[in-house]
Amino acid sequence: MLKIDNLHVRVAGKEILKGLTLEVRPGEVHAIMGPNGAGKSTLGNVLAGREGYEVTQGSVTLADRDLLALEPEQRAALGVFLAFQYPVEIPGVNNTYFLKAALNAQRKYRGEAELDSMQFLRLVREKLGVLHVSDELLHRAVNAGFSGGEKKRNEIFQMALLEPKLAILDETDSGLDIDALKMVAEGVNHMRDPQRAFLVITHYQRLLDYIVPDRVHVLAGGRIVESGDRSLALRLEAQGYGALARREPAARAQG
């Protein structure tokens, strides 16, 4: 589904990703772990199409479409969803209005019929029931005045509503208490599907207790330095990233 090949990315003149290669197949959950400054968030932003990230080498395809050639909204319509590490507050824009506009923009792009208000509200109610999100969030402005936990819940709710093919969770667990963390994990687990892939970017192992990944990758110094199954995350938890950093030059030499 997602193929990243030898991706090099510069931000403000500085090379952050230095030859990242990764493949995620439909139905898989991959975790990307790594120390601060490794390029984890850069990866999420590049995949979603944020400006200011200069791809100098490499390629990214989603279901064989060249993702890097597309605008952020086109990527969204093709099924890319980024759950933001810091969801943006947008005062004055009603959450429900925004979600309906977003969903219909995506459907229109894909040549599907737009949903009318009744159909949309039915969909919203269905998703709310699954996620245990208070419908009060829907009547407020997008993320405006939301607590950290509410913002992350809103991200997961948006993900559930937009039903992406590839969901990227950028440190969605940061700053969450255990209840909010479980809610996020439940939302993801409920959406696991043979046709859908997840890229879970996280600094800590904790989230992976609740979202069990198929693969775990360690991102350090702008590239994947180690990949493995779930036990790799546990080993990192025990040993810390420091142990990896010492091994990194060896990995670079091999590349």
């Binding site: 979603a48 199409g49 944020r50 400006e51 933001f84 943006v88 506009a101 977003a102 948006q158």
Partner: peptide, 18 residues
């Protein structure tokens, strides 16, 4: 706000709509 524009676009709104 560029961050807000990107947020809206990442959910599927066109640049002009955002």
């Amino acid at each position: 706000d560029e961050a807000a524009l990107f947020y809206l676009r990442s959910r599927g709104l066109s640049a002009a709509a955002a």
